[in-house]
């Protein structure tokens, strides 16, 4: 929690923490909204939806470590998606685009500072085995093309 507080401060987001339970992280309703938002961004940028599974893996690993308020959660989510796109997609999406997709809630430098925090928080493990990846390999092995196409459009 002390890390989160200092991070928030260093980001210029001196917002009071709303007393979220640090072990459960983010409420499910928020998480759902975040996933929806990620899909919107990914569809808008014409990227594969599977990148969202990586973004959410980062997100779920980061959030429980820090008590995070609703503003910071958005920044963390956006940064996780930005990072996942960088690592897993061939198309480049600039910080600026990400920032404008958040309707100006954050500045570039806040995303970039959060990127460092997320990287360290993840211990730099950026290629997790996601359930999505497992299913993809599984259906590839069973050669179930129908299921294959279905998971390409969903998950997380």
């Amino acid at each position: 929690p002390s890390v989160a507080t200092s991070s928030a401060a260093s980001l210029g987001l001196n917002l009071p923490l709303t007393g979220l339970n640090a072990t459960t992280g983010c409420p499910l309703a928020w998480r759902e909204k975040i996933v929806e938002w990620c899909y919107q961004v990914v569809d808008h940028c014409e990227l594969g939806r599977d990148v969202v599974s990586y973004a959410m893996s980062y997100f779920d690993r980061i959030v429980p470590h820090y008590g995070i308020n609703d503003t910071l959660v958005q920044l963390v989510a956006m940064t996780c998606l930005y990072l996942a796109i960088k690592v897993h997609c061939s198309k480049k999406i600039s910080v600026q685009s990400m920032v404008s997709l958040s309707r100006g809630s954050f500045r570039d430098d806040q995303v970039l500072k959060m990127e460092r925090i997320v990287l360290q928080g993840l211990n730099w493990y950026l290629t997790p085995a996601t359930p999505h990846l497992f299913l993809e390999i599984f259906f590839e092995t069973t050669q179930d093309n129908e299921a294959m196409n279905e998971i390409k459009d969903s998950a997380s």
């Binding site: 690592v87 970039l112 990127e115």
Partner: peptide, 19 residues
């Protein structure tokens, strides 16, 4: 680096080598 954060090639190299 200042514009787009941590370099992509380094991120990928780290990600792959760690896994």
């Amino acid at each position: 680096m200042t514009k787009e954060g941590f370099p992509i090639s380094a991120l990928r190299e780290i990600g792959v080598l760690l896994s």
